[in-house]
C-alpha cells in the first residue's frame, strides 16, 4: 500500500526538520569548537628562503641532501651521473631549469614546501604525515603509513613520492633533515649552498629578509613579492624569483589552503557525528513504523500462499 501524498509530505517535513536541526547543532558545535577555521602559523615555524636569482644550479644541495638522508643517488636514468628527472623516492630535493626560447632562464630548487596547512597531513588517514605543532616541519612516520598515496593526490606541489618497486614501500619527501635539526644543525642543503641562494631560519625572519631584498631591489623580483607568504594558506619554504612563479613550477592556488577551502563542509557536517546520528534516528523511526505494517503483511502472505515468508 502506497503512502499517500499527504503522508509523504508530512514525513519529509518532519524528517527534514529533524535532520536540519541536527545539521544546525553540528554546524554550531563546529563553530564553537573551532573559533576560527583559518590555520595558524606555528609559533617557532622554521623555513627556508630560496632566491632563484642567486642560484647557479650547481646542485650541491642535491648531493648533500642525498648524503645527509642516507639515500642512494638516483642513477636509474643515467648510470654515470646522479641525474633524476624529478623528485622521487631517491631524491628529496632537485634543481630544475626553466628555459625560454628568448634566453630567459631560471633555476628552481624543488622540495617539500612544509605548508602552514598541509593537504597531505589532512589527507593522511592515520597521521603518517604530521605537522609539528611547534616548528611546523611536516614529517613522515612509517609506523602510521599504510601506503595509500592519498598524500600524493592531495599535494598541490606534487611533493610526496612513493617507492613503487618491492615489498616495503615508503613515502619519501624533504623533512628539513629532521635528524640534523634534532642535533641543532641546519638542513644539509642550506649548509652547503655556495651562493647562499637557499637559507634556513625562522619563517618570520626569512619573510623579513625576503621583503628587505624586494625593497632593496625594486623590479628585480617578480611582482615584487615573495611566494609562500599567503599562497595556499602559506608555506614555510619561501621563494623569490625573477620569472613568473608558475614557470618555475609553483602553482597559484589562492590564499586558502586546500583543506580549509575544500574540507570545510566535511568538517561541519560530520562534527561529533551529530548529523549522522540525527539522520539515523529519523530513519530508524520511519522504518520501525513501516516495518510493523510489513510484518503483518508477511504473516498474511505466509498464510495465504503456504510458502515461507521471506524477510
Amino acid at each position: 500500500m502506497e503512502i499517500s501524498r499527504r503522508e509523504l509530505f508530512q514525513k519529509i517535513t518532519t524528517g527534514g526538520a529533524a535532520i536540519a536541526a541536527s545539521g544546525g547543532i553540528s554546524a554550531a558545535l563546529t563553530g564553537v569548537a573551532q573559533a576560527e577555521e583559518t590555520p595558524q602559523v606555528p609559533p617557532h615555524a622554521l623555513g627556508m628562503l630560496y632566491d632563484a636569482t642567486l642560484c647557479i644550479g650547481c646542485k650541491t644541495c642535491v648531493v648533500a641532501c642525498t648524503q645527509a638522508n642516507g639515500l642512494t643517488p638516483d642513477t636509474r636514468t643515467d648510470p654515470l651521473h646522479q641525474a633524476p628527472a624529478d623528485l622521487n623516492n631517491h631524491t628529496k630535493t632537485i634543481i630544475k631549469l626553466y628555459k625560454e626560447a628568448d634566453g630567459q632562464t631560471s633555476f628552481v630548487k624543488q622540495q617539500c614546501m612544509h605548508c602552514v596547512d598541509p593537504a597531505c597531513a589532512a589527507a593522511c588517514m592515520f597521521g603518517g604525515l604530521k605537522k609539528d605543532k611547534n616548528t611546523g616541519v611536516v614529517t613522515w612516520n612509517g609506523k602510521y603509513c599504510v601506503g595509500c598515496r592519498y598524500c600524493e593526490v592531495a599535494c598541490p606541489y606534487n611533493v610526496p613520492k612513493f617507492r613503487w618497486e618491492g615489498f616495503n614501500p615508503e613515502i619519501v619527501k624533504c623533512e628539513f633533515c629532521k635528524d640534523r635539526l634534532a642535533k641543532g644543525q641546519e638542513p644539509a642543503c642550506t649548509t652547503v649552498c655556495p651562493r647562499k641562494a637557499v637559507i634556513f631560519g625562522l619563517r618570520e625572519d626569512l619573510l623579513k629578509e625576503a621583503k628587505r631584498r624586494i625593497a632593496a631591489n625594486p623590479g628585480k623580483y617578480h611582482e615584487d613579492r615573495v611566494f609562500g607568504e599567503h599562497e595556499g594558506g602559506g608555506t614555510q619554504v619561501l621563494y623569490l624569483s625573477h620569472v613568473p612563479f608558475d614557470k618555475i613550477g609553483l602553482p597559484q592556488p589562492g590564499n586558502e589552503s586546500i583543506p580549509q577551502k575544500y574540507l570545510k563542509w566535511q568538517k561541519r557536517l560530520y562534527s561529533y557525528l551529530v548529523l549522522p546520528a540525527g539522520l539515523y534516528a529519523v530513519l530508524a523511526g520511519t522504518i520501525r513504523k513501516n516495518w510493523k505494517d510489513h510484518e503483518e503483511h508477511l504473516e498474511e502472505e505466509e498464510k495465504a500462499s503456504g510458502l515461507r515468508a521471506q524477510l
Binding site: G57, A83, K96, L97, K247, G249
Partner: peptide, 21 residues
C-alpha cells in the same frame, strides 16, 4: 669569495620544470 653568474647558459642536461611522465 664566490661570484654570481650573470647570463647563465645552462646546458639542457638539467631536467625541465615540467617533464612528461
Amino acid at each position: 669569495q664566490t661570484v654570481p653568474i650573470h647570463f647563465p647558459t645552462p646546458p639542457d642536461t638539467y631536467p625541465p620544470v615540467y617533464s612528461s611522465i
